[in-house]
Design a binder for these strands. Structure first.
Lengths: 138, 138
DNA sequence: ATTGTCATTGCACCTGGTCGCAATTATAAT
DNA sequence: ATTATAATTGCGACCAGGTGCAATGACAAT
């Protein structure tokens, strides 16, 4: 909800298109792909151009209202109020598992020490094989 | 070098196009983007179609001769004999740092224990801010 | 050296995502 | 309520990467 006020505070305009996009992301309980957002928005307001949606998504990301992550070959978006977590994506069956943040605290520290690099570990996507697929493939 | 024999052993044909592509990847000491490979190959043999190159790259990846990773918004390729490493990509200036594998051994183990998930940590790309950009932005 | 077969190529077209630009519109000031 | 103006939209063109298909060509068998 505060996305709207965040935008206003930054002197950005509140167009019907933007309202729809923000709404779509808020109503979703999981992350959406760009494609899904485009479909949802255009169902309610045909004629909205995809470039508008991509630009709004980028803007919302920049404003900190929305997180964008790469999930395989496409992008997913979800609103910022959700807790952080990481994704395990099985390359066998496509299933995704969400996993906790704490696993990476050590890595985060090591990277900072060794390379002076502050990693953005808000959302990380890792590919691999789930238990089931691993058993199947052997 | 053994890429060539690997292909032969699989009953695949050794076309001049494929020879050039394999050669380009072997001659490079760092990873190349698909774009760079296309340019290199076409310099020596104009008319080679990009789809041929993408397909060959995919084939080499499947044969285990070449690794493909996502680096931001594009793909990079390098031959399999290189050691594995991960990439730190600065979202500020675009600079990339290569970092060692050993950082992730612990994480790998935790994920297997907690979720039964075997992560493919061959090449991981992590976004964040490098030291310089972090100092600048404050 | 010729031939047959199947892998491979080039082509034309498609996809998701991005960009520059002219037309439109949300908002603030009057 | 009008107006000014800067942000935003829709459009069309573009980019990297991928795909189905008919034509070509590498290689094995003769």
């Amino acid at each position: 909800m505060s996305c709207i006020t965040t935008l206003k505070n930054k002197g950005l305009k509140l167009t019907p298109q933007r309202r729809l996009i923000v709404e779509a992301i808020h109503n979703a309980d999981v992350h959406l792909t760009a494609e899904e957002i485009i479909t949802l928005v255009q169902e309610r307001m045909p004629g909205v151009h995809k470039s508008t949606i991509y630009r709004t998504l980028e803007l919302l990301e920049g404003a900190g209202c929305v997180y964008k992550s790469e999930l395989g070959d496409h992008f997913i978006y979800h609103h910022a109020e959700e807790g952080h977590h990481h994704h395990l994506v099985c390359t066998g069956c496509g299933m995704t598992i969400e996993c906790e943040e704490d696993l990476f605290i050590l890595v985060e520290k090591s990277l900072a020490d060794r390379y002076g690099f502050r990693v953005n570990f808000k959302h990380l996507v890792m590919n691999g094989l789930c238990e089931e697929c691993r058993n199947k493939s052997n």
